[in-house]
Amino acid sequence: MLIELVKEEVIRLNFKAENSEEAIRCAGQMLVETGKVTSNYVDEMVKMSQEIKGYIVLAPGIAMPHARPEYGVKEIGLSILTLSTPIPFGNDANDPVKLVIALAAKDNTTHLKLLQELSLMLDNDSIVEEFSNCQNSQDALDIVRTFAS
């Protein structure tokens, strides 16, 4: 599932973000451009991240911005963004963030499978470093491939 959704168009490496909003918008824009979500969904991801500070930071160095499907998810999808400089997202335990995975979720079984694979991939002490060390999208795809079933 993961490997079917992660293509070069949804990977961006070493993005220089000034703050968490810029990072979320960059990751969200890839989902807009690939027809997965509306721009309203991206606004909602940003809003959510500001309302409940730090909640999208799932694990050390990893943020997973997302919002409810009804705010503009057209198709299930995700994008992968690494930041050239780690950015604080307002989560004391897991800041700063280096890896951003924007999620366009739908409540269905495909979604379950995706989350399962994603959680497996992210439950890995070296995953942030592995993505940060990627030279190009192909390297990132190789990492995803090792966790996809």
Partner: peptide, 16 residues
Amino acid sequence: VCAVGVGSSLMLKMNA
């Protein structure tokens, strides 16, 4: 429980 209810809370449900 997570803020949105479709992402991390579902991961937690499966893992738990």
